[in-house]
């Protein structure tokens, strides 16, 4: 059986809220290492990969592998019934028909319980190779969100170019062009505002802004975001969570000109 207690229901609520417009029906794969999810959007352009490690829960118990097939719209309806500060416990039997969610208020004796019916989801699982990326950019998640939103006003796609001088986000559209360049930057007082560029070779790739703006819905989960790029491979956008848990998005680049 599965029994996993999250100190803050809000974490799962934010994760599901961030991915529910990209993917609809997902298997939450539970085993003794934690709860994982991998799902592609219908057009096979973007992929969501979530890992909530066992250490993110206290306690965490999962005796055998259980796949919980859940419709995210349904899950969101139930998660909206939780207060942000509520403690959330997920429970499921070994061959479950439902997943049980219990919300407990830390301040009152209120306890609410919901069951969500599970679905049989035959999901394509992709093998994502371990990649040594040519460029890794760590930056404030709010800054990345702002750049994507700003450039989307002009164009449907953005070129991301990383060189030793910095990282340039540029676009061109019917009304004109736009570009934002960031250089490595260290803010001793507020390290969350740092921009770090680790580069082994220059990279230039073009991506659909519609997807990037969608990924940025995860900005509330982490003050920083990591962009990992290599020429001619999908972009990795990673939001790190506590206890080495993460929410990752992969996006296939645009091809040709």
């Amino acid at each position: 059986m599965l029994e996993a207690r999250l100190e803050q229901a809000n974490l799962l609520k934010k994760v599901v809220d961030a991915i529910k417009d990209l993917v609809q029906d997902c298997n939450f794969d539970c085993n003794d290492s934690g709860v994982a999810l991998q799902a592609m959007d219908n057009s096979h352009v973007a992929l969501v990969s979530m890992m909530l490690k066992a250490e993110s829960f206290s306690p965490f118990r999962c005796d055998r592998n259980i796949a919980l097939g859940i419709n995210l719209t349904s899950l969101m309806k139930v998660l909206r019934c939780a207060q942000n500060e509520d403690i959330l416990t997920l429970k499921a039997e070994d061959a479950p028909d439902v997943v049980n969610l219990v919300f407990e208020s830390s301040e009152s004796d209120r306890l609410s319980e919901y069951d969500i019916k599970l679905m049989d989801i035959d999901q394509e699982h992709l093998g994502i190779p371990e990649t040594e990326y040519a460029a890794t950019i760590t930056m404030p998640s709010a800054e990345f969100q702002r750049i994507c939103r700003d450039l989307m006003a002009l164009s449907e796609s953005v070129a991301i170019e990383a060189t030793k001088d910095g990282v340039k986000f540029s676009c061109s559209g019917d009304i004109g062009n736009g570009a934002v360049t960031l250089r490595s930057h260290t803010n001793v007082e507020k390290p969350d505002l740092n921009v770090e560029i680790a580069l082994s070779e220059p990279v230039a790739l073009t991506f659909s802004l519609k997807y990037l703006v969608n990924f940025c819905k995860a900005s509330g989960l982490s003050s920083t975001v990591k962009l990992c790029l290599s020429n001619e491979v999908p972009l990795l956008v990673e939001y790190g969570l506590a206890s080495n848990s993460y929410l990752r998005f992969y996006l296939a680049p645009k091809i040709g000109d």
Partner: peptide
Amino acid sequence: GGGQGNLMSFFGMK
């Protein structure tokens, strides 16, 4: 602009 790449051509099915 060019075409949109597909993840299936980068990542193999498990």
